[in-house]
Design a binder for these strands. Sequence first.
DNA 1: CCTACATTTGCCAATATCTGACAAGTCAAT
DNA 2: ATTGACTTGTCAGATATTGGCAAATGTAGG
Lengths: 100, 100
Amino acid sequence: MDSQFGEKIRTLREKQHLYLRQVAPLLEMDTAQLSKIEKGLRQIKREQIPILASILKADPDELLTLWLADQLYAVVKDEKLANKAMQVTEEKINSKNTGD
Amino acid sequence: MDSQFGEKIRTLREKQHLYLRQVAPLLEMDTAQLSKIEKGLRQIKREQIPILASILKADPDELLTLWLADQLYAVVKDEKLANKAMQVTEEKINSKNTGD
DNA sequence: CCTACATTTGCCAATATCTGACAAGTCAAT
DNA sequence: ATTGACTTGTCAGATATTGGCAAATGTAGG
């Protein structure tokens, strides 16, 4: 399970019976790139996610969440301190929301 | 609170009554760089963390945790879906640990 | 086996991003 | 005004990532 985002968009694309060659041009890329994105070998650009969501009739927030999760996971995937670092980060996020 | 790692190492350095100019050469960098690192304007390299920990007589794991947290935070800091993304990532980390 | 089509892989030039190094700047104490 | 500590700006060089093409692989039908 290398890229949750990639897996998700592949599943969605297949559900819509679309080929890479049909979707890729709508994102202004070639099939090779999109293939790599689906396999997690490349990252799609953040700003392309809403476009892709509309092509695949998916929830943009859901795709963005998975995309962010992939980015986060890349940081900590081989770290024994992953969980601790996640915890510290969450506290930082929450303290920001409470404005202190 | 831009960089928890930076704040921490500055505090530690000051507790040891060390100057930038004393610490920087031990990390093979100049004072300007180390200053930026302490202020969160630059990232120290992961492999320099244990060296720095020994200079500052700090727990390497604690510093690494803060450093990782900074990296994580950089990914999601302006994202409204930050919390959701964190949650998804944690599940991925944990499912990896249970081997499924 | 041969062809057609979808997808994947490998490569590398182009681009984007980050870092190292130096110079000049601020600030505080004397 | 000088010194010492730290900060800031700049920018070429190093690193990392991406885009685009060509070739390779896989698959189904004839």
